[in-house]
Design a protein around this nucleic acid. Structure first.
Lengths: 237, 237
DNA sequence: CGTAGTATTGACTATCTTCAATGCCAGTGG
DNA sequence: CCACTGGCATTGAAGATAGTCAATACTACG
């Protein structure tokens, strides 16, 4: 299964729609469905699993909104090794994290079949009411900063994996609804690459969390257990 | 030396100035010194070492620009342990990372005597030309996302410390000038808390980097060595 | 000069990585 | 239908890395 390469991004069909008329806009812009003036996007780019978006660094400043699926951001270290830098779920932005990188931009790969919208940034200093759009982007970016500051490196492996799964389930669930289980779209190796653990350690941590009844794990399906807080020490096997 | 607690933030003197008339605006807003319309700040809050800014989460959305010194962001884990979530240097923003946190906002502590400016966010949808301000904030926030996504957890301890120091020196130096050495304003324990390493491991890593001539280390003064790239394996002692 | 905070060093131990082998599962083609 | 294949997941054993505990040295500052 060769990944279909979408090298770079070049807007193709110039259809522009207003988010105010999109039924899923609540997911993207939380709060209200939008008055309906300045949130303009090129809608619904479909990415099959493995498709790659190579975002340019610096201007023009590209932003995508994830509509469905999951994107994995990765970067190539100086030694040539791959590092998974993060995941993006519906309602989250991709693009700003690459703006400041002079070289080696992030590679964005669809971890599962996904749909994204390409946001058209307003021309600065020209338009009138586009500050509402910019403010929403700013709030979204602020949430990304917080998310990227997660204290993974300081936690022991099992806590890192538990926190990752809990975080992922929370982000994957539609606001409000708390469905039991969620399918992880990425491999154990991806999780390990993201958390700074080896694939095997992720597997063992998941097994221990399952044995300790802190998580439900069936292959890639994971679910939270309700009263999972007090469990501290888990048996090694 | 008790830290002077600045609990919460409440703008006191309502002096508002335009960044266009500030000599250090280049450091804050890179690019040009600014046309001079909409970048308004409450200037020069002085924080002595150890002073604490407790930023509220959610609206009103507080943003500070660091003018000089260094701020350390930390959060309290569920177990009560402290985790250093990041450092902010001149030209960097503090505030947005707390907007999305419902509870447990970041604690911002002056790692060394510092000066910050309080940015007054424009009233959205009202003003005209304030989109330029928002766009600059957005670009700054994008850089923060990238910075927070550093691949620390995947690197071995010595590489983590080396990368941290190199990153810090780069950020601490004024753009363009490459002065030899920089004073780290934080303790080894702070660095360890940030990188997910113990204090002792940071000390040992710095000692090895010094022996291997990858860094110059004299107490808190650190400096980069020019041709430091090819060094791969360093002697253990 | 004494004190408190910080930095360093050593010895021992727990955790995590690495290497290797095996199992599982879906897709493919005979 | 079934063997074959490739990607992914799992398990075990051995070794390396980093954490913990404890003692000591350094440094700034009153």
């Amino acid at each position: 299964m060769l990944p279909r390469l979408t090298t770079g991004f070049r807007p193709r069909n110039r259809v522009i729609v207003d988010c105010a008329y999109c039924p899923t806009a609540r997911r993207c812009w939380d709060e209200a469905p939008l008055p309906g003036t300045d949130l303009l996007v090129q809608p619904e780019l479909r990415l099959e699993r493995g498709a790659i978006l190579t975002l340019p660094s610096g201007p023009p400043r590209i932003v995508f909104m994830v509509i469905s699926g999951c994107l994995a951001l990765s970067e190539t270290e100086v030694g040539g090794t791959r590092h998974t830098a993060g995941f993006r779920l519906p309602g989250e932005l991709v693009g700003p994290e690459s703006w400041a990188r002079a070289d080696r931009p992030y590679e964005v790969r669809a971890a599962t079949a996904s749909v994204v919208c390409h946001l058209t940034l307003p021309r600065i200093g020209r338009g009138r009411g586009n500050s509402a759009f910019l403010e929403r982007l700013l709030v979204k970016s602020a949430a990304q900063i917080d998310r990227a500051m997660r204290p993974w490196p300081g936690l022991p492996a099992i806590e890192r994996v538990a926190a990752f799964v809990e975080d992922f389930v929370e982000r994957a669930q539609v606001r409000g609804s708390s469905i039991g289980s969620v399918r992880l779209p990425m491999t154990r190796a991806d999780i390990g690459s993201y958390l700074g653990l080896s694939e095997e350690t992720v597997v063992r941590a998941l097994a221990r969390l399952k044995r300790g009844r802190r998580l439900e794990v069936h292959g890639r399906m994971v679910g939270l257990v309700q009263c999972s807080r007090p469990c501290a020490q888990l048996p090694m096997r």
